[in-house]
């Protein structure tokens, strides 16, 4: 059977190729994988995991981190106090059906369902923890206008902290759709391994699902053209390309044989 029996243009990418692409993105765009407050980002001793980047990232002075504002200490408002934190995506692996790259946890009902993908990623992070000495700098009775260690009222003070790092192993399952010429990933299920109580786990899972969904929609929606390495049919004015319909293509995009496949029809 030919690749193009039911379409004019076919493209597929194997999970091993996608995993290499993920690794290239991680090394060339580290700020999509590492998030921290400025105090922690600027001190590599405080990072939870070493960051591997290409020489061009350094040469062109790209940030290793997306810098985020400090996390407020609840109840502190005179002055407001914040602490640093860090979150790093230290591993990301994709597996297209049939699942064979890693084992899914029971909560995601293995084996991986047909036409689905699975993600295995590790998130390491930590909240900054201040020393007793640092905590003693918080003014008794609130802010004094002449307090030496604070800049002034209403300006958030960031405590010097050291994150207590931990890592979470996260699994997700999902599927792809083609929408408006973009390949879009959708998260169907997510599971954090070995975390209790259940309520905390559910909260974190929901948060991570929202994170992954936002990234997939905002940053990783891939144009069909890119998937075909800019195949030159896309720039012929007299040719219009669109996803092949069902029938004759039952799944488009298809996730099968460890590959993601798209089928494109051509109208001249």
């Amino acid at each position: 059977m030919a690749f193009t029996d039911n379409c004019e243009l076919f493209a597929s990418v194997h999970e091993d190729g996608v995993n290499r692409v993920i690794n290239h993105i991680r090394r060339q765009r580290p700020s999509w994988f590492n998030y921290a407050t400025a105090d922690i980002a600027s001190n590599r001793e405080l990072w939870c995991s070493k960051i591997d980047v290409t020489s061009d990232v350094v040469k062109y002075k790209n940030s290793f981190f997306t810098i985020l504002p400090p996390l407020p200490i609840l109840g502190a408002d005179s002055p407001p106090i914040g602490i640093g934190f860090i979150a790093q995506l230290t591993k990301a692996l994709i597996d297209f059906h049939p699942g064979n790259k890693f084992s899914l946890p029971p909560q995601l009902s293995p084996p991986l369902q047909p036409q689905h993908f699975a993600l295995d990623f590790q998130v390491c992070g930590g909240l900054g923890c201040a020393s007793e000495k640092e905590l003693e700098q918080i003014p008794i009775g609130g802010t004094s206008p002449n307090a030496a260690t604070f800049e002034g009222p209403k300006t958030q003070v960031v405590l010097r902290t050291q994150p207590i790092c931990f890592c979470l192993e996260v699994f997700a399952t999902g599927h792809f759709t083609l929408e408006n010429g973009f390949l879009l990933g959708h998260v169907d299920g997510i599971e954090i391994v070995d975390i209790t109580p259940d309520g905390l786990e559910s909260n974190l899972e929901c948060y991570l699902k929202m994170c992954v969904t936002a990234v997939l929609r905002e940053k990783l929606a891939i144009q069909m053209e890119k998937l075909t390495l800019s195949f030159p049919l896309f720039d012929i004015a007299t040719v219009t390309l669109s996803p092949s319909p069902n029938p004759p293509v039952p799944n488009n995009p298809a996730v099968e044989e460890d590959q993601l496949k798209i089928f494109i029809k051509m109208t001249v």
Binding site: A2, T4, F10, S12, H14, D16, T228, Q259
Partner: peptide, 17 residues
């Protein structure tokens, strides 16, 4: 197996040509 496979039908190839 190759990481990337792209196929163009004979009709699509004619357009390229």
């Amino acid at each position: 197996m190759s990481h990337i496979t792209i196929a163009a039908s004979s009709n699509a190839f004619v357009q390229l040509f």
